[in-house]
C-alpha cells in the first residue's frame, strides 16, 4: 500500500508475542521526533487490537494506519508531541 507519509523508522517485532510488540513500539516511539512515523512489523495477530488500544490510550501518539498482509501485521504510529 502506498503510504501518504514518510516512515522515519521501522521496528521489526516479527515472532514476538504479547506484550512485546506494544512495549517495543513504545520504546521505539520514544526515540523519534514529534511528527515522525514509526512502522511496526508484527506477526502477533493480537497486535492489531493491542497497538490500536495502546495508541488510543497513550498521550503523544496516534495510530495512522494498520494493514494485514501475508501473516504480517503492519502498523503505522505517529509521534504527535
Amino acid at each position: 500500500m502506498s503510504a501518504e507519509f514518510d516512515i522515519a523508522e521501522t521496528l521489526d517485532v516479527k515472532g514476538a508475542s504479547c506484550p512485546m510488540p506494544v512495549v517495543k513500539t513504545k520504546s521505539a516511539i520514544d526515540g523519534l521526533a514529534a511528527g515522525e512515523v514509526l512502522e511496526v512489523l508484527a506477526t502477533d495477530p493480537g497486535s492489531m487490537s493491542d497497538i490500536d488500544g495502546w495508541a488510543d490510550g497513550t498521550e503523544g501518539v496516534e495510530l495512522v494506519d494498520q494493514t494485514e498482509g501475508d501473516d504480517v501485521y503492519t502498523h503505522y504510529v505517529r509521534k504527535t508531541e
Binding site: 506484550p19 506494544v22 512495549v23 513500539t25 513504545k26 495502546w54 497513550t58 498521550e59
Partner: peptide
C-alpha cells in the same frame, strides 16, 4: 510482569 510492562508503555 506483562501488565506492568504494558502499563509502563501506556505511560
Amino acid at each position: 510482569l506483562i501488565l506492568a510492562s504494558t502499563a509502563a508503555a501506556f505511560g
